[in-house]
């Protein structure tokens, strides 16, 4: 029954999924003996916004860390625009990629972390210009202009010279979003971007993410426990459990008409 659902879904979006931006092909990840991701097939189209929901420990974080090259798959292939991320083709065979290949591929991906991970020894502006200058080779002036524009977008144009420790959690996370946006990735990953925040600061961060999502172009994969937000922003909801995608589809369908028992009980738990 689940397989049918997935088929149905792909059928509906056949045009978009023909040339996926991101494709997981039979990807597995184990930490020692523990299998965290199991034979996962998962595509994201250019510009698509996908929200990943699922119980704690179901592998959501691991799923996106594999794409950010922070975890290496145990087996399977991840492709970006048809090109393997973790592998390189040498004489028709896929071999493990070197740092140079990873560097080339990573430029298309950005990530916002649960714990912000701002660089504490740099000002807000410097946090946002360090990579453009050193990685993209921009001039400092050019990088600062771009960074200031992004910081304005997240509402922090007046905090350029502050250090991360002087900011609230919500402000720090907005800087982290600006820092990632400055690199203009094709796909942006969010790992529960609001779950380390005090409740009253969640809204400002969600608003920023929503605004970015509405701009369109950039694909997004959002791991979140904010169900209302996911329903609002996402084109598709993916429900993971036990390292597999158990059910996925249109947000309205997923929330109002969940098919699998596990999703039904998960949603019930989230609502209570």
């Amino acid at each position: 029954m689940l397989a049918v659902r997935t088929e149905e879904f792909i059928g509906k979006n056949a045009v978009e999924t023909a040339n996926p931006l991101v494709a997981y092909k039979k990807v597995s990840k184990a930490f020692g003996e523990v299998k965290v991701i199991r034979d996962l097939d998962f595509n994201v189209s250019p510009g698509e916004k996908v929200a990943i929901i699922g119980p704690s420990g179901s592998g959501k974080t691991t799923l996106i860390r594999l794409l950010m090259t922070l975890e290496e798959p145990t087996s399977g292939v991840i492709e970006i625009n048809g090109e393997p991320l973790w592998h390189k083709e040498v004489k028709g065979k896929l071999v493990k990629a070197d740092e140079k290949h990873l560097h080339k591929m990573r430029g298309q991906i950005g990530m916002v972390f649960q714990q912000f991970n701002l660089f504490p020894h740099m000002t807000v502006l410097r946090n946002c210009t360090e990579a453009p200058v050193n990685v993209l080779g921009m001039s400092r002036k050019e990088a600062e202009e771009r960074a200031k524009a992004m910081l304005a977008k997240v509402g922090l144009e007046n905090k350029l010279d502050s250090y991360p420790a002087q900011l609230s959690g919500g402000q720090q996370q907005r800087v982290a979003i600006a820092r990632a946006l400055v690199m203009r990735p094709k796909v942006m990953l969010f790992d529960e971007p609001t779950s380390a925040l005090d409740p009253e600061l969640v809204g400002e961060v969600l608003d920023v993410i929503r605004e970015i999502a509405e701009e369109g172009e950039m694909a997004m994969i959002l791991v979140t426990h904010e169900m209302e937000f996911a329903k609002d922003v996402a084109d598709r909801i993916v429900f993971t459990d036990g390292g597999k995608i158990v059910e996925q589809g249109d947000p309205k369908e997923i929330f109002e008409n969940p098919k699998s028992e596990r999703l039904q009980s998960f949603l019930k738990r989230m609502r209570s």
Binding site: E99, H103, G107, L118, N134, R179
Partner: peptide
């Protein structure tokens, strides 16, 4: 913290950077 290295990787800095 490991998160610092991971943030730097996410910004595509080289190991040396």
């Amino acid at each position: 913290p490991k998160g610092q290295t991971e943030a730097a990787i996410a910004l595509n800095m080289t190991p040396f950077q």
